[in-house]
Design a binder for these strands. Structure first.
Lengths: 185, 185
DNA sequence: GTCTATACAGCGATAGAC
DNA sequence: GTCTATCGCTGTATAGAC
């Protein structure tokens, strides 16, 4: 039981890398088989639903990670809002920099995969935006808009960083976003 | 001669729609054939290089459109910077709203297509950023950074608008971007 | 539970009739 | 110049040996 879970969990991590590299459509089962080190038989044993189930498992894993490492820390009190946001920006910069500058939810949102995984994509972004919104002072009127703009900046910076093939674009954009936040708070 | 050019130009417009809907990998030749109303023979007559040449033709068409309708107007004097930027934001909002909220260059940048069309993708974004940069007063120190942030906001807003399936997200983000620009200028 | 072999549909691309 | 028929290949998915 534990081995099975571990085996599947390992496969999900490898699958995330394949989807980031090739996209959902471009991730062929032979590429997946190579990168995970599992034969097709094993893959269909872990994921009877095939490629779609592999992708939902990946999205759920990434979504849970963001829930634990990004959304929850934003809500945890004890630090002023700008410090929590600074920590979040550091976390996500490190996360995406070590993952080919690809946000799977963002990439799926831009393609045909959007419909298939609509609920998960929506939950990822609304979760992020509302965690940020609650980070801001409760009386703040434009908290929702500011949160939306912040998430949009991050996603747009990822696109630009990949388009210009320069991770510094992500870094610089996030630093300036933090500056804007500090000025407002 | 004129007919041939027209036929190809019409095909390029239809192709853009197919790539926006299905992505590069997902756009099968049979879907392309359906949507353009051309048989495969005709398609390969217009685009001997196959799907890759179809995509480059689309990117060149869109790139030229942005050059004429977005970058050049930004540079044209006679209006203050904030007015030119407001016009740009209106233009791009209308453009993307009527095109499924998909920026082909942004979508390609996030996928495996990035390498294949790297120069065109880079030229699109650097062209946009530098046109914006030159729009700002010549003495402005952070013009390049502000321009980068603005383009990132637009691209991120497109992702969010698709993820949340709400074109108003694009509209709201652009309005607030304009407000920030006005405050700085 | 893992592999190899295979089914069958669809892919991009080409050939050749008209 | 446009179509239909077809090529060779790869896609996802399944079956069955071990």
């Amino acid at each position: 039981m534990a081995r099975l879970m571990t085996g599947r969990a390992d496969a999900v991590l490898a699958l995330a890398g394949v989807f980031r590299t090739y996209g959902y459509e471009g991730a062929s089962l032979s590429a997946i088989s190579e990168q995970t080190g599992l034969g097709k038989g094993s893959l269909y044993n872990f994921f009877p639903g095939g490629k779609e189930e592999m992708a939902t498992a990946v999205l759920d894993q990434v979504g849970a990670w963001f829930q634990d490492e990004v959304y929850e820390p934003l809500r945890s009190p004890g630090q002023p809002a700008e410090v929590r946001i600074a920590a979040m920006l550091t976390t996500v910069e490190k996360y995406f920099t070590s993952r080919q500058l690809v946000c799977l939810f963002g990439a799926f949102a831009l393609g045909r995969e959007r419909e298939r995984f609509a609920e998960r994509i929506r939950a990822y972004f609304t979760g992020w935006i509302s965690a940020l919104q609650e980070t801001f002072p409760s009386g703040m009127v434009d908290a929702g808009e500011l949160a939306t703009d912040l998430v949009a900046s991050i996603q747009g910076a990822l696109i630009l960083a990949r388009a210009l093939d320069d991770p510094e674009v992500l870094r610089g954009t996030l630093i300036r976003a933090q500056t804007r936040v500090n000025r407002i708070l």
